[in-house]
């Protein structure tokens, strides 16, 4: 992108800038993860081999893990591997970390996508209706209902749903393992309970932001103008107000989707769902450092990527930047 082009299309420059910041943030986070893990008390080789190991075996194992090398060297070695797709080997079972992650990451993404596909349209739709009928009974009920859902701890919601829909009614399995079945319908059925639990947790936040952003724009003179042109109220909200309120909504949606990928450990544990969160918790207990590092890095990357996407979308909804003078 030449300088002249950048001046003509400020949006390209802004996106390039955001991408640069994103990459830099990821670098900083990788350093932090590496340092944090290195500073964990205790010797990893000792822990893995157990108290009975002889000092010679421990030393040999340390050499094998590269722990005798300086910190900076170990960091470069790790990052270099990650950049070429090699996350190292698990200390617990010796399998490549990448293989371990692949299956789990797929499950996590599936569950997150499942929940997001329900929650995002639901939340935005409810938010728009609440803005349209603000102050009405619908507005209040939607507010109270979503707020109650977010106020309960997620494991509580999970157990309630499990009790009614699984134990009492027997409609859905309480242990949600989608991996076994190749058929989509069956996968959806098995992951239904965790997905709905997550939907209940994330809807309130997105709905309230949608409502607030739209209501904020509804006071603008161009909204009055649209009404004076004879535009119906629903069309005013969806066609005139929403496009101008997208930026904050997109940001909240991105944060919530990121949470759906990275923050669902508790729900995974309750439903024994084989996702990334559970893998990370297990690896921390086992001191399986390469896996912990890889998980943390993936979580950070997801956060950065989704927020970057939200930033770019928010910029792209601003006609002043998209269509400069």
């Amino acid at each position: 992108m030449s300088a002249a082009e950048a001046r003509r299309r400020p949006i390209l420059r802004m996106i390039a800038g955001r991408l640069g910041i994103g990459v830099f943030t990821l670098f900083v986070i990788s350093v932090l993860i590496f340092l944090a893990v290195s500073l964990l008390p205790g010797d990893i080789a000792q822990q893995v081999l157990g108290q009975s190991a002889t000092p010679e075996t421990v030393a040999a194992f340390r050499r094998e893990l590269g722990l005798d090398q300086p910190l900076a060297w170990r960091y470069l070695d790790w990052v270099g591997g990650v950049l070429s797709g090699d996350f190292g080997r698990s200390l617990a079972n010796g399998r490549p970390v990448a293989d371990l992650l692949a299956a789990r990451l797929g499950n996590t993404m599936f569950l997150a996508a499942y929940a997001a596909v329900i929650a995002v349209p639901l939340a935005v739709g409810l938010g728009l209706l609440a803005a349209l009928w603000r102050g009405s009974w619908f507005d209040r009920i939607a507010n109270v209902a979503t707020l109650s859902a977010i106020s309960f701890p997620e494991f509580f919601i999970a157990y309630i749903l499990m009790f009614w829909l699984s134990v009492r009614m027997g409609w859905f399995p309480s242990i949600a393992d989608p991996g076994a079945s190749p058929r989509l319908a069956e996968m959806l059925g098995r992951a239904f309970l965790p997905a709905i639990t997550l939907v209940l947790v994330v809807t309130a936040h997105m709905m309230r932001m949608t409502r607030a952003a739209v209501v904020n724009v509804l006071g603008a003179p161009y909204v009055t103008m649209a009404r004076l042109k004879g535009v119906s109220r629903w069309r005013v909200v969806t066609r005139h107000a929403l496009p101008n309120a997208l930026a904050p909504i997109v940001n909240v949606v991105a944060l919530n989707v990121a949470w759906l990928i990275t923050g669902v450990v508790i729900v995974e544990v309750v439903f024994v769902y084989p996702g990334l969160g559970q893998l990370m918790v297990d690896s921390v207990t086992n001191r399986d450092i390469p896996v912990v590092q890889a998980c943390a890095l993936i979580f950070a990357a997801v956060y950065i990527l989704l927020n970057l996407l939200a930033d770019v979308l928010a910029i792209a909804t601003n006609p002043r930047l998209l269509h400069p003078r």
Partner: peptide, 23 residues
């Protein structure tokens, strides 16, 4: 609403604020 815009139209003081910036 059937009258507004169709039979009686309105021109506002600030066109900059009264045009939808996204359209």
């Amino acid at each position: 609403r059937a009258f507004r815009g169709r039979r009686v139209a309105y021109v506002a003081q600030s066109a900059a604020a009264s045009f939808n910036p996204a359209w």
